[in-house]
């Protein structure tokens, strides 16, 4: 009876399920910003080594580090990609689950750029402009008032009278944090609003910072919770919009977008590497030391990732938009010697 056969094979599968085979490929998870770089490395690694191509999951820095800290063993991931440094609370959570020896590897820098439609006006921004355009409250004659600005000309007399419309990354993105920190907060301090916020909050610096980065909610600033492709689509439908992108995304779409300068510097891999362009952040990946030697290819993958031919200024990662780390050699030594955090 075929029915019996079906049941038996179903049973056989559940039995097989308990005897899972050993894992022979590296598993990576984490930041969606690091994902394209990790995918490029994984692909080249699979082509040139005898190890299978690593599996790379996205999902965000926090989700990746959470998975990373779930414990040791084949059922857990080996590498977590992150677009920010691991937090002390995450190191603690890791330690509680037995993940104590973590190798931190900095792979380079990611630039955050401001871009608008290729056929529209071009802009030369400063952090002050963005603060005045997007902040919930701004300083007018020494008092805090609701943001009255409607067009870019209101913000800065040198700009055209183009309606304000900005597409900024949603709060779940690591990019948002950098945007708030290096642009909005910097603008807040430069326009003098920071001191007013501080005075209003009884000299509390933390509260003033929080008040600074509160963006207006009247529809001028739109949070994009999706990825940069959504930001691009929004700009295509609203030509007045200005979006916040990663440098790599812009480099891949230079026929549709034009980039704005920030404090007089045009973003490029060179200007970010030299530190001239202000809005950038380091990118990392974290390796479980306990998995090296257990999961085949893990050490080789880490070394390959930071090798000169991959992460160097002429490598495929730089070509895609990663800003090469000038300290790459030190990183290579760190990976080779498997130096863990806190050592």
């Amino acid at each position: 009876m075929s029915f019996a056969k079906l049941s038996v094979s179903a049973l056989a599968m559940t039995v097989a399920a308990t005897a899972a085979s050993a894992r022979d490929q590296v598993q990576v998870a984490g930041s969606s910003t690091v994902l394209p770089y990790a995918a490029i490395v994984a692909e080249a690694f699979g082509e040139n080594f005898d190890f299978p191509t690593p599996v790379v999951e996205s999902g965000g820095s926090s989700a990746g580090l959470k998975k990373f800290c779930e414990g040791l063993g084949e059922g857990t991931i080996d590498v977590a990609n992150a677009s920010r440094k691991i937090k002390d609370s995450e190191i603690k959570a890791c330690a509680e689950n037995g993940v104590t020896d973590i190798i931190e590897v900095q792979i380079g820098y990611d630039g955050i750029v401001f871009a608008s439609d290729i056929n529209g006006e071009s802009f030369e921004f400063t952090p002050e402009d963005w603060f005045l355009a997007l902040s919930d409250k701004v300083a007018v004659d020494g008092a805090l008032v609701d943001n009255p600005n409607k067009t870019w000309a209101d913000v800065n007399a040198n700009f055209p009278a183009q309606p304000l419309a900005a597409f900024v990354p949603g709060t779940k993105h690591g990019t948002r944090e950098v945007f708030e920190d290096k642009v909005i907060l910097a603008g807040c301090e430069a326009t003098g609003a920071f001191d007013l916020f501080k005075a209003a909050n009884g000299d509390d610096k933390k509260a003033a910072e929080k008040a600074c980065i509160a963006l207006r909610t009247d529809g001028v600033s739109v949070d994009i919770d999706g990825d940069y492709t959504e930001t691009l689509a929004r700009i295509e439908s609203n030509k007045d919009g200005i979006g916040v992108f990663g440098l790599a995304f812009y480099e891949n779409n230079t026929d549709k977008l034009q980039v704005a300068t920030m404090s007089g510097v045009t973003p490029s891999t060179e200007s970010i590497a030299s530190g001239e362009y202000p809005v950038s952040r380091p990118l990392f990946f974290y390796v479980k030391k306990a998995h090296i030697g257990v999961i085949p290819g893990l050490q080789e993958y880490a070394e390959f990732f930071v090798s000169e031919e991959i992460a160097g200024p002429d490598g495929p990662l730089a070509e895609y938009g990663l800003v090469a780390d000038p300290e790459l050699e030190a990183t290579q030594e760190l990976v080779a010697s498997q130096n863990t955090l806190g050592m």
Binding site: A16, Q25, A29, T53, G59
Partner: peptide, 23 residues
């Protein structure tokens, strides 16, 4: 999404039944 199948995978899984356990 939650069980790790939303990923960049380049290796073909092996034939069944072992392949069922490959990424």
């Amino acid at each position: 999404l939650l069980i790790g199948m939303v990923a960049f995978v380049r290796e073909y899984p092996a034939g069944p039944p072992e392949g069922l356990f490959d990424p």
